[in-house]
Structure formats: C-alpha cells, structure tokens
Design a protein around this nucleic acid. Structure first.
Lengths: 252, 252
DNA sequence: AATTAAATTTCGCCT
DNA sequence: AGGCGAAGTTTAATT
C-alpha cells in the first residue's frame, strides 16, 4: 500500500509499476490527455482527471463531473507504463476486443497503490411486501383481468401471499418470492393450492410470482400444473412509486 | 486540496464536509457498506471500496474489480455527511429521480478533497479516410446497390471523396465528413455535382455522408436536391476491422 | 463461444 | 423538461 501526494513523475511510475505488477488497485489523479482506438476512436485533450486501474485490468478515466467515465477499458487489459520525456505514459491494451488506450500524465496530484479486499455481497431486491403492494396496486402486473380478494383477512392456511379471481372467475393463489424461486417455493405453492382445492369447487390456479426461477423448480412447477409469472423488480418499484405519488396527489 | 491517508473518522469527515461544501471532488477509500433505494433496492455488505463524489453531485462506488460501479447516483444529488457512533455516514439524495443512497464507512484508508479543472475536449471520431475505406469495403453501407468506381484515379475536380453508380446506373457523388456536416460541406458537394453534371448526360446524385448534419445545412441540402446519408462511426470501424481480419485470413 | 434480452442502463438530440 | 433512439453501451441469461 503506497500513497504519495504530488509525487514526481519518477516517484509516480514506481508506484504505478508496483500496482500493475502486484495486481493491486491504482488510483492516479492529475493532468492528462487520453487517446483511444478500437471499435471507434477518440481523443481527450489536457485536463485534471481521476484514473483508476482495477485488479482485473479494468480502466476508468473520470472527469470532475458526470456519472460515466470519459474513457475506459473493460477488464482483461494488459499494461505498459513508462516515463517519456516529461510525461508518464500508460498504455492499456485489450487484446481480446482489440481495444487500445493510452494516457499521458504531465502532472500528478495523487498516486495510490491500494490493496483492497472486498468479500461483500451485493443484493438487488424488492422485499416480498414491496412486490405484494405493487401487485395489489396494479393487479394487471400479474395477469390481465386479475382481481385480488380479501387481502386484509388472513385466510386459514395463513400464509398465502395473494389470492384473487382471474378473468374467468377461477380462484388464483399467488406465491411471491423476492428473488430466484427454488423448489421449496413450488412445493409451498402446491400445498396452498391443494388445501384450497379441497375446500372449493372452483377451478384453482397456482401462480409462482418471482423475478426468476431455477430450472429444476420450473420443471417441478409445470409437472404440478402450476404457473410461473416473471416479476420485474424495477416495474414493481415504479408501480409503487406511482401509487405513492397518486396518494400524495389525492391529498392535495 | 486536502489529502489524508489513514485518517481518523473525525479527520475524514472534516475533509468530506470541505469537499461537499466547496463543490470539489471527493475520493474516499475504505471499508464500507452501501444501501440504495429508488427504482430498485440494494444492499452491499462490508468491503473495501473507492467512493467518488463529483462536483455535480454524481456518486460512484467502485469495488476492486469490474468496469461498472456497484452503486451510484446520477449528478444532481444533495448530501448529508455525519459521524455516527463509530461510522462515517454519507447520504446522497437525488430528489428529482427519487433515488436515495447511504454509505457507512467504518475504516478509511484515504480521503482526498480535490480541486480538479478539466477544460479538455473529448472527440469521438473516425478519420475521413477510415469512413472512405469502410464504404469502399462495404458499399451497401452507403446505399443498397451502390457500386464505387475509379477511386484509384483522381478525376479532374480532384477532391471528390467517392463516386460510383447506384442501382439504376445513375452517377453518385459522395462527400464525406468525419463529424457533423455544416453548410460548407453542402456547398462543396453542390459544386462537385454541378461540375460533373456539365460533363455527363447521366442523372447525377449528390450524397453527403456524415455522422450528423446541422439543421441549416440540411435545409440547404434539400433545397439543392442533394441527399444526406447518416454514417454510423461505430459501424465504419466494425466494417474496417472485419476487412482487416479478412485480409489477414486471406494470407493464412 | 455466440446470441439475445434486460439494465437502478446512460446519454444526447429533438420537441 | 419529457420522450425517443443510439451507445466504444454493459451485463446477465440462454443456446
């Protein structure tokens, strides 16, 4: 781990070499120009930027504004760095995709070779309750003509997420999963459907609603005569958001 | 400009406040967790990351690998930063898009408040010669049935980029521009077309081929009975790349 | 590996 | 400011 502020180019390149050789993360801040050639071509004239080279060989050049990097390379690059007259030159070559980028630093504010450990897990999700509220607010999200019933009172099986009637007045039992549904979700749904079938002379359909489903679970689901409905998390959140806005508007 | 390595959380938050108040660029490296709620929701458990907050209120959280940020906010956020027990909490709120993100740092390796100036211009382009070679290699790119002629010998007007025959055997004069075409490009093309018309009894069409065209130029173009063909720079580069690969293959 | 579809797509151009 | 379409899109899922 080496961090130097306002280093000379010579000091800087030593840190750069360390980072590249040891596959650590490099941050370089300073005045630079960038050239790119590959699927397209680009040039970027002199200015202050933040360069990040990651362990996997991904490269980002960021300007002081804007979400997107002005120049980048995807992971898998190989690098050459050297001192050239009064500039530090870094080449990033993506041989596989035939993409080539070079950066010339003429002045460096900060160079850092970082040993970052990141075992953390990233989870993108909506809660089951989010999905439930979204479907109740916008039942067509589940199926055209779907009408939820008695969501307030918990019926005896106790843990049915949503039940309702389809456009043909068949009973529909919905099991929700906030992430990829597995076999346990299918058996759970099957149990509820069977319970209800015993007590009703209606046709009873079972729908497993989730962002995705494992292959095994889907095979089991079909063999049991049940159905899968893919839920779009983003659409759920959008729907909820609109509902909330509507609620606010109704109060104005 | 303040840069501190392994600061205490107290030292760090002072730099964070400086950066946010003075609308400078903030870089924070350390152990953190992230939560996001907006169009979707996400959580990210503890790990080493690089946080960048830009002048325009854009936020990036980068892990040690991967091109894309694991969490982000678009420009226009407002921020709240405070010390909370033994964590530094930063909230980034995008009121306009109703996106909310919070980051909790428990350990900081590096904090930097940077005054970056970037007047540089970014230009994405293909050279005129690139475009020419691409069209000659793949004439349908210009128009279905287009056949280039005599590109080797420079004809008298001298500076015609490409000429050829369309599927109806009409003469076609092509003027290339590597970036947005303006009125001068149109008058240039008009001149060549008129020159050729005087010497030929064929129908002579004039096509201005460029990535885009100014409104004024397009109006003038139409009034002169000329045509515009939008050129996709990426498609040109892809075409060239394939041609080069083919050439190599032919030698094997 | 190649192709397709979705993305917290982002980004620019036009209305 | 909102809507549409392209992007050095990226990324995940599927064939």
């Amino acid at each position: 781990m080496r961090i130097i502020t306002t280093p000379t180019l010579k000091e800087a390149i030593s840190v750069v070499h360390d980072a590249l050789n040891q596959k650590k993360v490099l941050i370089l801040v300073g005045k630079c120009t960038v050239q790119y050639k590959g699927r397209a071509r680009s040039t970027l004239s002199l200015g202050d930027r933040i360069l990040i080279i990651k362990r996997d060989g991904a490269v980002l050049v960021h300007r002081p504004t804007g979400y997107a990097p002005v120049n980048y390379q995807r992971s898998g690059c190989i690098f050459y760095a050297k001192l050239e007259e009064d500039r530090l030159k870094i080449e990033a070559i993506d041989q596989k995709h035939k993409e080539y980028m070079k950066i010339f630093f003429s002045e460096i504010t900060l160079v850092a070779c970082l040993d970052l450990r990141d075992p953390g897990e990233f989870a993108l999700y909506a809660t089951e309750e989010d999905i439930r509220r979204a479907i109740l607010a916008n039942p067509e999200m589940l199926e055209e003509g779907f009408k939820p019933i008695s969501i307030e009172k918990e019926v005896e099986p106790g843990f049915i997420d949503i039940c309702g009637l389809d456009k043909n007045d068949n009973l529909v039992i919905v099991e929700l999963k906030r992430k990829k549904a597995d076999k346990t979700a299918v058996t759970q749904l099957a149990k509820y459907v069977n319970d209800i079938k015993k007590r009703s002379r209606r046709v009873v359909r079972g729908i497993l609603a989730a962002p995705s489903i494992t292959k095994d679970a889907h095979i089991l689901l079909i063999s049991l005569g049940l159905e899968f409905k893919k839920i779009n998390i983003k659409a759920c959140m959008e729907s909820l958001r609109k509902t909330e806005e509507r609620k606010i508007t109704e109060y104005l």
